[in-house]
Design a protein around this nucleic acid. Sequence first.
DNA 1: GAAAATTATTAGACAAGTCTAAAAATTTAT
DNA 2: ATAAATTTTTAGACTTGTCTAATAATTTTC
Lengths: 219, 219
Amino acid sequence: MLSLAEENYLKAIYHLHHENSKAVSTNDLSSILETKASSVTDMLKKLADKNLVVYKKYQGVKLSKRGETTALKVIRKHRLWEVFLVEKLNFNWDEVHEIAEQLEHIQSERLTDELDRFLDYPKRDPHGDPIPNKEGQFAVANKTMLSELEIGESGVCVGVRDSSPAFLNYLDKQAIALGKTLIVKEKESFDQSMLVAYDNKVLRLSEQATQNLYIKPNS
Amino acid sequence: MLSLAEENYLKAIYHLHHENSKAVSTNDLSSILETKASSVTDMLKKLADKNLVVYKKYQGVKLSKRGETTALKVIRKHRLWEVFLVEKLNFNWDEVHEIAEQLEHIQSERLTDELDRFLDYPKRDPHGDPIPNKEGQFAVANKTMLSELEIGESGVCVGVRDSSPAFLNYLDKQAIALGKTLIVKEKESFDQSMLVAYDNKVLRLSEQATQNLYIKPNS
DNA sequence: GAAAATTATTAGACAAGTCTAAAAATTTAT
DNA sequence: ATAAATTTTTAGACTTGTCTAATAATTTTC
């Protein structure tokens, strides 16, 4: 059985690997996990001994098959609990991360599966991220960043890349939520900002914003 | 913020204190917590430094006001999660303890209170134990052990003293559940066993059993 | 392609929570 | 009321996960 720290390392390696799909560096891990690089090295050795990661000194690290399975189980739990918190306990999507960080470490396969059933087998968490099933499988969505759309193109909001409370709160204030259809009206080459129409509004979104909103393009 | 170990010590002290209402001994704690007596002494010093317990060497320990409040918060969470597991996630009353032992340490007052609301402010957990409210208050039930009833007396099953899976399972097999009315038909002075009627059955219960079933007597 | 800058690892230390073994205090028994 | 038994505490050590400081490897720059 893995410790809380071990699970967090596996999860962080998984996320970093799926962002830039190459071996994960010690420094990147240390900054995500808010520890010193030396602590990361220590832990990577331990995880390598347990065959959860493939690690070669100075070469970065990636998950083994076993490590990936484990990471996906933790991610599954995290996202299921987020759904629970939003759907059943009145939490807003910007309030659930911290609590899910704790709940994701509860050990009981039965609990996870019953929760999944209770929530009616949700496919995505409140931020639009896919929820792996019991076998670790999940559907990869057809999506692009809003910043990739051209003028005149439209699509449905399906997720966020940055799920910090700050960004989610900003979206709430603009009444941008998952499921909304956006149409690109203008793109400003000076600062890459965009004029976007939705509901009955037109709004300017900064590059910062457009690069953190996932859109399922309309064909 | 308290560590998991600290919370578990406070909870154990609380339970032991309310069983025999005198200062709790190092050995009793060590056997409940499955640690060595020396570890208990170490921890009691730490808890005393934090003003969570009143501890004098060789004299046993009891909770301070602050320690009791903290213990009650943990117990509140434990029992609310047990209700959740049974009412919403299809768990049986003999399957919830271990998982609740993990869930009780999740830190978020908002979570606890939303869970309480979601469950519609339950007053008792699946074993009949009272659930403290936000302020740590709970109703003490009017109850006796089944073994205390005389022949001809009856009452409603309202709780268990031993909530081990073994005992709960045994009760399930006999179809004894909370809410059932029992009538004492005979008491055997040889072994203190009892003949008890309920539903349309008559059943012999050992002293072991009658001393672990709480009954609310019919006046 | 060597010097400089960056990144990563090693060595040694520390806090939390536990342990074993030995010593001290308390309780029980005679 | 003293000896024996039990309970509790102390002393010192170990593990996990972290840290700082120093060293080593790799990458970047000129």
